[in-house]
Design a protein around this nucleic acid. Structure first.
Lengths: 244, 244
DNA sequence: ACAAAAGTGTTCAGCGTACACCCATGC
DNA sequence: GCATGGGTGTACGCTGAACACTTTTGT
């Protein structure tokens, strides 16, 4: 059994898996969301090595021994994207018997939210050939059950943005209200009334209006805001519940 | 390594674990909630076998090979309580390195909701000495990280009853509005206004008023209601969101 | 008849929702 | 000066919250 596993993992000469270092039936996979050109997209990597060599897949991998699941997710995220301190949320365990055909592997799914400012992405490394952003309705065929994980992540993101201000993680530190509104419209998949949206957000007192305008826009420059994380934390301690 | 595991699992002569049948690093543990005498309680079992022989613990155990996690949770629930078709919800993975001291075991936590009508509980079997309901603030010392799992389950239950009508799972098929209100008050840990509570529930049109009264009560008999599951499903399809 | 818990309506404030026009800029 | 997207206020209806008395039963 162990032989089969080693053989599969090290099918390619450049593979460096050592069975004594990893927990070979527990992995993590991460759906990385980004918001580009008013579209919600996910970051996929084309696998350089077997299994599933050449297929698009979520960044993922086996746990190391002595490593917590979230630590593994962050390590893998760092190794693939080069980014630290990203917003990460567990979405559940995926345990279908044949999801990994060679042997039974449980994977813990996560979603990550990254802002356009985190643009120094690693586009390939020893494990990957290429990285690319894909619109959610234009996904390529994915390895294993990764399409299923993406679907669940998409749903969790939709419910999460409604009770926790995580949408800001997908925007630059300085953003405009029209940007924020478009983000919500895309994630919730419905259009929102401009005046009501602004009124609600401003009444929450979670946004700091900056004395700057967004010059990138072609037409009338929009006011820039930033999310007041400290204030959010104080409000939460006082029993405040974010709702959208 | 395998030897150590076998030794620990079969420390007692009556143990019947066979390493070739189980996945020895993945288990499930289940927090069983019940609502008795206006109190929220959980059902614990005193372990008959090592490890943690003699300690109170959640019903749990290792996955069998070829078994889904939820299947394992239901199998174990059936073996300990004798109950089928219980409401079950996954609450997450517990992965602390030393939560199971002998080797690394990941457990997937669940909570189960059972009604007072399901009273044919198994109070002991080959794995357990005794079963007992405990009020949440009077828990004994628990095995492993089970106290932590209970705390998380308690939190999830609190958030869940606010957006899904699962509270009814803790009541008999026929229940009174005062019972339902007390249930919510206990789970949410706050008192509710009687008139507003009744108005809200009745307006939701999810309750069928029966032509019966609760005769068990000492004073004025209360009207009995039942939860209309079919109607709930139709409403959900039409976009209805349960909220309390 | 009295104690105990069940049942019932109204008022008010705040929030979500619907809705239309002026403003700042680039071209 | 015109096209484009940014920014603003008001009126209405619904829902959550506060609040007190009557009814039904057992003893």
């Amino acid at each position: 059994m162990t032989d089969i596993r080693l053989q599969v993992l090290n099918m390619d000469p450049s593979s460096q898996y050592r069975l004594e270092d990893i927990i070979d039936n527990v992995s993590t996979d991460c759906v990385i969301f980004g918001f580009q050109q008013s579209m919600l997209e996910i970051l996929l990597y084309k696998r350089a090595l077997n299994p599933c060599k050449g297929m698009w897949a979520l960044p993922g991998g086996f746990l190391n021994k002595g490593e917590l699941i979230e630590e593994a997710a962050r390590r893998i995220l760092y190794n693939t994207t080069g980014l630290h301190n990203i917003y990460l949320e567990e979405i559940g365990v995926f345990d279908q018997i044949d999801r990994f055909p060679e042997w039974r592997v449980f994977t813990i799914g996560f979603f990550a939210l990254i802002s356009p400012e985190n643009d120094k992405l690693i586009t390939s490394n020893e494990y990957t050939l290429e990285a690319k952003w894909f619109k959610l309705n234009e996904l390529p065929e994915l390895a294993w059950d990764h399409k299923h994980i993406v679907d669940i992540a998409r749903d969790k993101l939709k419910t999460r943005v409604q009770n926790k201000p995580v949408g800001f993680e997908l925007l630059p530190n300085k953003f405009t209200l029209p940007q924020l509104q478009t983000l919500y419209e895309v994630i919730l998949d419905k259009s929102l009334d401009k005046r009501n949206f602004r009124k609600k957000l401003i009444n929450m007192k979670l946004l700091k209006k900056l004395n700057e305008k967004d010059k990138n826009n072609i037409k009338r420059p929009a006011d820039l805001y930033s999310f007041d994380k400290k204030r959010y934390k104080t409000l939460v301690k006082q029993g405040f519940l974010f709702e959208m």
